[in-house]
Amino acid sequence: MKRKRIIRAVCSVLVVVSTLFMLQKLLLPKYVSDVVEGRLIAEYYAEEKDHDVIFIGDCEVYENFSPKILWEDYGINSYIRGSAQQLIWQSYYLLEDTLRYEKPKVVVFNVLALKYNEPQSEAYNRMSLEGMRWSMAKVKAIQASMTDEEHFLDYVFPILRYHSRWSSLKAEDVEYLFADRKVSHNGYYMRVDVKPAKDVPEGKMLADYRFGENAYRYLDKMTKLCRDNGIELVLVKAPSLYPYWYDEWEQQIEDYARQNGLLYINFLELAEETGLDYNSDTYDGGLHLNLSGAEKITAYLGQVLRDEYHLADRRPEERLSRIWADKAAAYEQDRKRQEEEMEKQ
């Protein structure tokens, strides 16, 4: 009798756990069509973790820098850990998370995220945080990011968040139940289409131009974390024309970089040096660069990184070269696919 009860209990638990697991898998957004940014963070874990440079930041890194160029031109092995509207504390904890696996020589952080001092949007939080593997870094990232309407438990059991998706499931939810589809090239989200930058709006007057205390606190933490781990932190401002980058913001970053002995590169001021053309190098009117623009500024950045930090050319490493050869092939295939699609339109 007792044995029967134990078997019954074990079977019940198995049924409950397996059905809940399957349902959760099914209901989670797959981010394979339309909004693919939700997949970017998770893709990192499948990588060989031996990077010289890690980029962290929002769309201004994952759409504006191409790790493939850093490899091909300079033999620098790099990866972008960025997602849509990635807030500075998310970047900080993603860096902490990255350091669990590897210790890069240089970390490149895009400073636009400093404009946000408080949690912003649940949808973007989800895209930044869901892909992270569980660790204390993730727990802290969630706690730092949650808006008032969010609940920590919804991150632990995402089925609670996505339970209502049952009525809007698509074929892709079944297709990618267990299957994976890479959407980035070492964290870089490729776009080859072109939309020239025209009539870029001027920035509106702000009541206070000073970056918030919370944002500064995480920048300090990031600086310290890099220093403690012997990592060079490079601050960059990508050449995106919008959101507007104010002179007052520029001044604060310049001051911060000087006070902390950090290299700061503002690509908005380097259009001539990088050869960036806003008529052909952006796909959305100046918000983000397309492939051509990203390759141009990455080429410039690679030169700086090599000169400033003497990063070794790793192209002679056979194993890494083989990996990158495959990556380059996928990169070219993606480019070709997109160009063909553009031609069809």
Partner: peptide
């Protein structure tokens, strides 16, 4: 019998979990 009981109550739990109006949004 146990399987019926289990199916009824676990089924109701799943209905509440999936079709309940709660959470973000």
């Amino acid at each position: 019998p146990y399987p019926v009981r289990f199916a009824v109550w676990y089924g109701l739990f799943l209905i509440v979990l999936l079709m309940g109006v709660y959470g973000i949004g």
